[in-house]
Design a protein around this nucleic acid. Structure first.
Length: 714
DNA sequence: GAGCACTGC
């Protein structure tokens, strides 16, 4: 284990510096906005972006695309849309759109801008996120929205004619939605020379984005259509307003980064210097382990020293109930130092005030997709340097801070500069279907910001074809393919919902689909595993998790959607409310399509399982006849399932029912599953499982009939 | 006996 700064040490520890320089700031660690008493208009002028106001307006006027590199605190998100409004870009009924990757961001930024303009949110300044359109037609001038909402809007208005400028914020995060939107916007620009794009991004990605939009070499019609407009994107840098963060490395690699992070936090704590600590780990189990170890440290610390700060550890991850998440964000009571052990959620989604120290294990769990087998897996992998910089920045929001990376400087230099865009490591069916619905027929030739692997595109086309969404010519089928593309669901669930309409159980299927869209309905955190098992048992049925969800929903409905009922049954009430929102939205779509939301009477859930099989037949599996033989006793006797479809060359994935499934003990002969995770021993753990009858498959999925017929005979 | 990065329509 590397040596860290010890209590009372004067000389530099493994960090390479001492923290004494910060002692003078001991009294100023309070959150304080020095401009709080200034009028809002004066505050606006003090933002770094204000100095570039005229330049930005000039560039937007003369360039089709302007790429802004704005660091945190520059004010770009709130100010640039206002500058555009003031300069007349919202005349003649058009709007400025500003997209955000996350719902909360769209809402909070809109609220802030409405306040600055002295207006009521939803009038001149509005926002639109799923379930919530707080804007007024013909009145709203600036509309903040999630990038997903703007993509959906393009289905009705492919040229985005309501907008004069689209600002795509946080483009460097390179989410699927952002990448898709940028690719489509490039096409739109060719047809709409009057449209302007403003893209905000961090340095590294800004160059890539600018190069992508550089059409200066275009000849002929496209160039002529551009008129006097410059086709080379303008690139502008705006300074941020955040504090310096000093970065430190280990002298020796740490074999166990959870232990190393806890030791580092304890050593930092022992210096007595003020400021909260944020540590980045990869998952729930690591965060909870770190909290337990820190609590142990705290107990020892209390015995050793009666004076000084006390440790207050907290875990923070997305699966945590809302109340526990909020508790981790609150400032600690006087005399306490908060140490938050967080996953990637703290990198972009959540900001923890008061953090002065970041301890970064330099790993994160990332989704990887194997287009050959069509299996997704979650693996802990080293992060990129860009990601590490973002994490380090979390220490400098209120005052100068420090970041300790739990690797050597040499190892850090070996990390990739940027992360692989999600588009290149995810399953593509939904995105491909959306593009098809927008008239992009040749997916392989689409101008991707980052082209996905060809194999992944082929898999997506195959799946969509098997679902009946694409015809033999790979074009969108009507009405089926168009309908699936319009549903705000994974195409497989969309297909299942429409099949349910034919089978007379669309209402039930909408429930199951909504429950599959939300995170686990079971109450997480606290670690009372046995109690949770008992709670699940009450709803569990031999037909699997998907029917169990239906039972939970019906019981929750019968209780009058009671929060107390949910609490008593260890069901997450907030998750249920969100599922209710999604279900309501799905029912609206069904109503528009003229499909009755019928629910099956009594306990006959076969129609729902048939509908599920109609969407999930791609993930149909059969219990293998022999149990798995392994030299490793832990895996011997595991009940292995095999996919019914072929997975190409290489060993077929060994599937088993995940521990979270209610079928973990029952093991039906035939099943379909919604998700799969790479687990211990190289097994793929199936979650969200439904038992099926093999005879259903040929009639529900005639495209794959030959696999099924062969398997059913066996 | 077993276990879950993060978003979004």
């Amino acid at each position: 284990m590397a040596a860290f700064l010890r209590p009372g040490e004067r000389q530099p520890g493994a960090f390479g510096v001492s923290f004494d320089a910060d002692r003078g700031n001991a009294g100023t660690a309070v959150l304080h906005n020095p401009n709080a008493r200034l009028a809002l208009s004066d505050q606006r002028r003090r933002l770094p972006v204000f100095e570039h106001r005229r330049e930005i307006l000039y560039l937007v006027e003369h360039h089709a695309v302007t790429v802004i590199v704005g660091e945190t605190g520059s004010g770009k998100t709130t100010q640039i849309p206002q500058y555009l409004l003031e300069a007349g870009w919202c005349a003649s009924g058009r709007m400025v759109a500003c997209t955000q990757p996350r719902r909360v961001a769209a809402m909070t930024v809109a609220a802030r801008v409405a306040e600055e303009t002295g207006g009521v949110l939803g009038r001149e300044i509005g926002y639109a996120i799923r379930f919530e359109d707080v804007s007024t037609p013909d009145v709203t001038k600036i509309r903040f929205c999630t990038d997903g909402v703007l993509l959906r809007e393009m289905l009705d208005d492919p040229l985005l004619t309501r907008y004069s400028v689209v600002m795509v914020d946080e483009a460097h995060e390179r989410s699927m939605a952002t990448d898709t939107l940028l690719g489509l916007l490039k096409k739109v620009l060719r047809r709409r020379p009057d449209l302007r794009l403003v893209i905000s991004s961090a340095t590294l990605e800004a160059d890539k984005v600018a190069a992508f939009f550089d059409t200066a070499t275009l000849r002929g019609k496209a160039a002529a259509a551009a008129g006097g407009l410059r086709r080379t994107p303008a690139l502008l840098s705006v300074a941020g307003r955040c504090h310096d963060v000093q970065v430190h490395y280990l002298e020796q690699p740490a074999p166990d980064y959870v232990r190393a992070a806890v030791t580092a936090a304890a050593d930092l704590h022992a210096t007595g210097l003020p400021g909260d600590i944020l540590m980045f780990l990869t998952g729930q189990d690591e965060c909870e382990a770190a909290v337990r170890m820190l609590e142990e440290e705290a107990r020892r610390g209390r015995r050793e020293r009666a004076s000084g700060l006390r440790l207050m550890p907290a875990a923070l991850y997305a699966g945590l109930p809302a109340a526990a998440q909020l508790a981790a964000l609150e400032p600690p009571p006087r005399g306490y130092r908060k140490v938050v052990a967080a996953t990637n959620i703290a990198e972009t989604s959540v900001t923890i005030p008061g953090v002065c120290y970041v301890i970064d294990c330099c790993y994160a769990k990332v989704k990887v997709y194997d287009p050959l087998s069509g299996m997704e897996a979650l693996l802990a992998a080293p992060i990129s340097r860009a990601s590490a910089a973002q994490r380090a920045g979390r220490a400098g929001r209120t005052r100068p801070g420090h970041c300790l990376r739990l690797c050597t400087e040499a190892a850090f230099a070996e990390l990739p500069a940027a992360s692989v865009p999600e588009m290149q490591r995810a399953e593509l069916a939904g995105t491909v279907l959306q593009l098809k619905a927008l008239g992009v027929d040749n997916i392989m030739a689409f101008d991707w910001l980052a082209p996905p692997p060809a194999e992944a595109m082929v898999r997506a086309l195959e799946l969509l074809h098997a679902l009946g969404a694409l015809g033999d010519d790979a074009r969108l089928t009507r009405p089926l393919g168009l309908r699936i593309s319009e549903l705000p669901l994974d195409p497989r669930l969309g297909a299942a919902l429409l099949a349910a309409g034919r089978l007379g159980c669309a209402g039930d299927m909408a429930t199951v689909a909504a429950m599959l869209c939300v995170q686990s309905v079971w109450f997480a955190g606290g670690g009372e595993r046995r109690a949770l098992e008992a709670a699940k048992e009450k709803f569990a049925v031999a037909e699997g998790d998907l029917v169990t969800y239906l039972n939970v929903w019906k019981a929750w409905e019968a209780s009058g959607r009671s929060g107390r009922w949910a609490h008593r049954h260890l069901v997450n009430h907030r998750t249920m409310l969100r599922a209710a929102d999604i279900r309501r939205q799905l029912l609206q779509h069904l109503w528009r399509l003229g499909i009755k939301p019928e629910e099956v009477e009594g306990s006959d859930d076969a129609p729902v399982r048939r509908a599920l099989a109609a969407g999930l037949f791609h993930n149909a599996a059969q219990l293998a006849e022999t149990t798995y033989e392994s030299r490793d006793a832990a895996f011997a006797g595991t009940h292995v399932y095999r996919l019914l479809r072929s997975t190409g060359p290489g060993l077929p994935p060994r599937l088993r029912i995940g521990a979270a499934s209610v079928l973990a003990r029952t093991r039906p002969q035939w099943l379909v599953f919604y998700q799969v995770q790479l687990g211990a021993g190289g097994f793929h753990d199936m979650t969200d499982v439904a038992a099926i009858e093999p005879g259903w498959l040929p009639e529900l999925a005639p495209h794959m009939f030959h696999y099924v017929r062969d398997a059913a005979r066996g």
